[in-house]
Amino acid sequence: MSMVAEIALESFVLLRLGERRFALRASQIVELIAPSRVFRFPHRTAALEGVILRRGRIIPVCDVSEQLVGKKLTVRRFYLIATRLFGTRKESMGLPVSGDCELITAEMMSRSDSDSAHVAGWLSHSGDVIEILNLEALTPGPAAAHPASALLQHAEVRA
């Protein structure tokens, strides 16, 4: 493998939502945990279900399946705890997933202007072309990050 090819490879975690698979950069993943009790309280952020308590920390839970596959998950096998950027600050979020997650190494293909905002890029794995998710665009926050920022971040890694 050439030096250039080695630099271009990145680690991703594949997650399953229903029948479809998506990817997140492995650097964004904290852990994969069994579903635990979701504490609900009144709020006005429709995309959030509530919070879970994990090692004394309170983590918001956001089911992104409706946006990505068009329906809510009926079976939740795990919560994937990932970090999302809020400006320069990182915070954890719990994403319900319906199957095992897999750590892979792949080359990221850049997104195009016609891609949805939640697509940070693409990768090819086992014959499938898989969306790499941009959590900043997919999950709620005070200011949605511009999709270009994910692209810029990627370009910096590859440079």
Partner: peptide
């Protein structure tokens, strides 16, 4: 209150207590 909570609840709550 975690940042993803970005609606009126930011005015309602000081935070969350376990």
């Amino acid at each position: 209150l975690p940042q993803p909570f970005c609606g009126e609840e930011r005015d309602w709550y000081r935070g969350l207590a376990p």
